[in-house]
């Protein structure tokens, strides 16, 4: 059984994406999906290019909805946490 940790906590150490643009949360999630995620069920995390509804994102311990969601621009030292609410309770 392939298990994905929940929540996932990340510490940001880079600030520019591959094209030299500042990286935002949208970039981070796509990158995670492409490079780090081993679980084949990527749709449980990213759906149609954005974080799946039902996955909560915390940016420096605050609701990402207060921080601009996917457009939030990452800064070095930021802590990003993804918590899925899609599991049984």
């Amino acid at each position: 059984m392939e298990k994905t940790a929940n929540p996932i906590t990340l510490q940001v150490e880079f600030t520019t994406d591959t094209k030299g643009q500042p990286s935002n949360v949208a970039f981070l999630t796509t990158w995670l999906c492409d490079h780090l995620m081993k679980d084949p069920r990527k749709e449980m995390f990213v759906l149609e290019g954005s974080v799946r509804p039902g996955v909560l994102v915390l940016i420096n311990d605050a609701d990402w909805e207060l921080e601009g969601e996917e457009k939030y621009e990452l800064q070095s030292g930021d802590e990003i946490v993804f918590v899925s609410t899609l599991h049984g309770g």
Partner: peptide
């Protein structure tokens, strides 16, 4: 709300088990 339940667990640092039924 499920969102607030998860937030509550997060801020209270509750230790819960999270995976889907296989």
């Amino acid at each position: 709300y499920e969102k607030e339940i998860v937030m509550y667990a997060h801020y209270k640092k509750l230790d819960y088990f999270s995976t889907e039924c296989i």
